[in-house]
Design a protein around this nucleic acid. Structure first.
Length: 135
RNA sequence: AAAGCAGUUCAGUUUGUCGCCUCUUUAUAAAAAAGGGGAGGAAAGUCCGGGCAGCAUAGAACAACAUGCUUCCUAACGGGAAGGGACUAUGCCGGAAACAGCAUAGUUACAGAAAGUGUCGCAGAAAAUAACCGCCUGCUCCCCCGCAGGUAAGGGUGAAAAUGUUGGGUAAGAGCCAACGCUUAAGUAUGGCAACAUAUUUAUGGGACAAACCUCAUGUGCUGAAAGGCCAAAUAUGUUAUCCUCUGAAAACUGUUCGUUUAAGUUUGCUUCGCAUCAGGAUAAUGGGUAGGCUGAUAGAGUUUGGUUGCAAAACCAUUCCCAGAUAAAUGACAAACAAUUGUCUUUAGAUAAUUACAGAACCCGGCUUAUCGAACUGCUUUUUUU
RNA sequence: CGCUAGAUGGCCAAGUUGGUAAGGCAUCUCCCCCAUAAGGAGAAAAUACGCCAGUUCAAAACUGGCUCUAGCGA
């Protein structure tokens, strides 16, 4: 087994086609300050695949590449440290894979502690939203 | 010592926890373990130049674009270094003035306006073949007025008014003439690789604008890693080979055989049979080629240190090191300590708070431009204090 | 990564041999109307034509640099 708090390349969503599908029609979206989510559940060949993520920061809001990188890195750390709990709560069926996009809403870089609180709330809302159509 | 300007270098450090990318070794079915490495001076803007790659390409000219004092540096450049000229400021000095000279500092896209074309608003008589007023001569005439001509010495303006001053000269004037200056071109001599400088002779007399058109000289083939090369799933499809199905030859077309008809031949029609062909399917091989992957792609006009040559940019020699290689895109997050700066408080050493810039590689180099909290060093200038 | 356009009153915008910025909508004042709208007459507004330099007597325009906006190439 891999380490618990890891976030390797396999958990990133790298295919351009998948990302297009996520945004155009087939994905559902949801907002909870300071984040918004686009997600989509598809069939998979693996038995218990890990969710695949994309982090999104608008170029309009952060014009400098340094700021965008910093926000993305903070978001990734938030997800990485919260992942075990998130996977427990998620409890997907077998052969199902989650594609998730985490977008950053505010126009400024918030402090880490504030982001943490917001992220935990947002994840709860997200899990409820995912489970609704299944049940 | 402080302030300012210019240049060069650096541009937070250490520890802990968790995590990312990559290379090597061990192990190999996979996971894993150990060790090494992991943003910049601008990685930015994309303003130039080159490498590299593909395509094109007899030669020459035109067009288009770029550059524009000289010499040097360089792979190359629109970059840099040194020098020359011009301009500006300050000081000194010569002169009646125009202006010139010297020193220091700064600026400079700085070929050609005496090749040609064009533009120069308003004002002003006139803006490049300048006669409105004025001055002078002649004619008319008592005079004024008027007509013809000469004249750039004087005159509202303007950014700019036709080479400055003095003297001669003249009807009045004028580079018309002379002297002293200025501008340009050509020749000669000296110095310099050269730009150019100085001296001298002859000619000339010039408005500004070429970041207006243009002329001259020099250079440039086009495209750009989304270039180019290789491998290649699924699905669809092209080609080839073999086999099977349908007996379906209904329609259209072609050849052969047989029969009928006809004296024979030709043509047409009908019937039967078989092959090719068409339709569908299976297997195998193969082609282009999509998703995707590999390569291009990280050892180079390289880094460190020293020496030699050169005023310098830079070059050469020796030595040393291997120093990111991601690809929806890694190089991080959190905590603590220290350091620096600033503020506040007590007080001269602590406490506390805040801040620690600009900014993130995307094929690679050389420059330029722009952003940048702060620190160190070097040089110059100014002010103050001490000797 | 490689390219291309644009920026002019509050809004839409014209403006090229370089000579002080046309027009429309909106705004303000007056007339018309019992009143409003429409209509008619008149007026103001561009600090500094995105910003900073340069060329020129003079720059919205010409030249260089910067900022922002929009678009193109898979």
């Amino acid at each position: 087994m891999k380490e618990i708090y890891s976030f390797s390349k396999e958990e990133k969503l790298c295919s351009k086609i998948d990302i297009d599908n996520l945004f155009k029609t087939k994905g559902r979206n949801l907002a909870s300050y300071p984040f918004f989510f686009n997600f989509r559940i598809i069939d998979s060949e693996q038995k218990q695949p890990l969710p695949k993520l994309v982090f999104l920061v608008s170029k309009r809001k952060f014009k400098k590449a340094v700021d965008r990188n910093r926000v993305k890195r903070m978001c990734r750390e938030l997800y990485r440290l919260r992942k075990p709990l998130f996977l427990k709560d998620l409890d997907l069926l077998e052969n199902k894979e989650l594609h998730l996009c985490i977008g950053y809403m505010p126009n400024e870089i918030l402090e880490y502690t504030k982001l943490q609180k917001g992220f935990y709330k947002a994840l709860k809302v997200l899990i409820n939203e995912i489970k609704k159509p299944l049940s």
